[in-house]
């Protein structure tokens, strides 16, 4: 196993979510975090920070930050599922904005819609307050990288 795959396995065993969430500098800058739900699914969150605002007058979260949070949540979900031994590479990303993001915590849940050998299709919902109050939906494709033999040297 390579370094990243080992880290994910350790984080899963120790439930040390913060360690994985803080691995990537930009995710740390905007404040992405996550945890396991009672049913084992992951819930991603982006606590409010004034530096994530896009429209100071409304105020509303920056649409690009909402997109970045959703994309990074999908990356973490794929790593968590141990579908990739390297950081998955984004191929394309498409987002629909349904409501302005209020200055409060934004949540996201990810579903891996289709998982092939090389490509994963992931759908992400972002919401505030309750899951019905959807702020944005996104779909994206990632290129995965898997080692044929887990015991092979990296």
């Amino acid at each position: 196993m390579n370094e990243l795959a080992e880290l994910v396995a350790r984080v899963r065993a120790e439930k040390d979510y913060e360690r994985l969430a803080e691995l990537v500098p930009y995710a740390k800058l905007i404040g992405v975090s996550f945890g396991e739900q009672p049913d084992g699914s992951l819930l991603f969150s982006l606590p409010y920070r004034p530096s994530n605002i896009g429209n100071a007058l409304l105020p509303a979260l920056h649409g690009g930050v909402i997109a970045a949070f959703m994309e990074h949540s999908a990356t973490l979900q794929l790593l968590w599922n141990m579908e990739s031994t390297k950081l998955p590479k984004i191929i394309d990303f498409s987002i629909d904005y349904l409501r302005p993001g209020r200055p409060e915590t934004l949540y996201a849940d990810c579903s891996v819609v289709r998982q092939g050998q090389r490509v994963a299709n992931v759908a992400v919902n972002a919401w505030q307050g309750s899951p019905e109050r959807v702020v944005a939906t996104a779909r994206m494709h990632f290129l995965l990288s898997r080692q044929a033999q887990p015991q092979s040297a990296d």
Partner: peptide, 20 residues
């Protein structure tokens, strides 16, 4: 704004912010 600490590449999400 790095997205991959091993390569130093910018996070694609930061590019989305720039684009938006």
């Amino acid at each position: 704004i790095v997205g991959n600490p091993q390569t130093g590449h910018i996070h694609s999400g930061a590019l989305t912010v720039l684009i938006d």
